[in-house]
Design a protein around this nucleic acid. Structure first.
Lengths: 124, 124
DNA sequence: CTGGATCCCTAAGGATACTG
DNA sequence: CAGTATCCTTAGGGATCCAG
């Protein structure tokens, strides 16, 4: 039994989150995290590349979200010590494991978001 | 061609969101929305049932999130005019369409959240 | 039982300027 | 180029009490 070794090594994260879903939402739920991950799905990107892909995100927020994604182990940050500086972000294996979810979320919006907005308008 | 009829009826939601993913995140990204949807996956639930399933959500927040989900057309709210009051929430077809995403998010956390928390601890 | 109304507070996010 | 450092605003969320 998994609980025979004193502390339960599996699913101990449920101490922090009362439900698995909460955890995933927290990990990719930041306003820009999902989008960043999405853009990294097709390969590594430099800081300014990401900023160009999302012009309405501020440098500050981009940096913050990248740092959090890095701290969670979802992305790698590779610094090239040159002048001018060059930093490349890429998905870790853990980040890669989110691919199906990201793609499904993209697809869902494409197929259903119009309806959602119609519904909102109707009872507005 | 889809653009031949003057205004593009498809994907007009991209005026509001610069990326499909942002849209989906907004729809299920509320702190409790995903969890509520999850609990509705296996059938309709009453207000207090949901509250019992998530004791740490306040009545106010539960009400608010339910209202938003309803406004987006993801859930139905059926009021039984009796005393005491009885209200049942259930998924609409649109809400049902989120099932694969919800389940995938659950599964992802189960398989990967431990690693995420380890990563966080390590560079904390 | 299912909320609504009110008050409050923190953390998420944004604007702007500066820097190695 | 790839960030920090400040300052500021707001919306998300919580606590509590009231009500049909």
């Amino acid at each position: 039994m998994s609980s025979s070794n004193g502390n339960n090594t599996n699913y101990s994260f449920l101490n922090k989150y009362s439900c698995s879903l909460e955890a995933t939402v927290e990990v990719i739920g930041g306003k820009w995290k999902g989008v960043i991950l999405y853009h990294l799905l097709d390969g590594k990107k430099r800081f300014n590349e990401l900023k160009r892909l999302k012009p309405n995100i501020t440098q500050r927020m981009l940096t913050l979200q990248l740092r959090e994604l890095e701290a969670d182990g979802l992305i790698n940050r590779k610094v090239y010590r040159e002048v001018p500086p060059k930093v490349e972000y890429s998905l870790t294996e853990l980040g890669e494991s989110l691919r199906p979810i990201i793609l499904l979320m993209m697809e869902w919006a494409t197929n259903n978001m119009e309806k959602v907005l119609e519904n909102r308008d109707n009872d507005a």
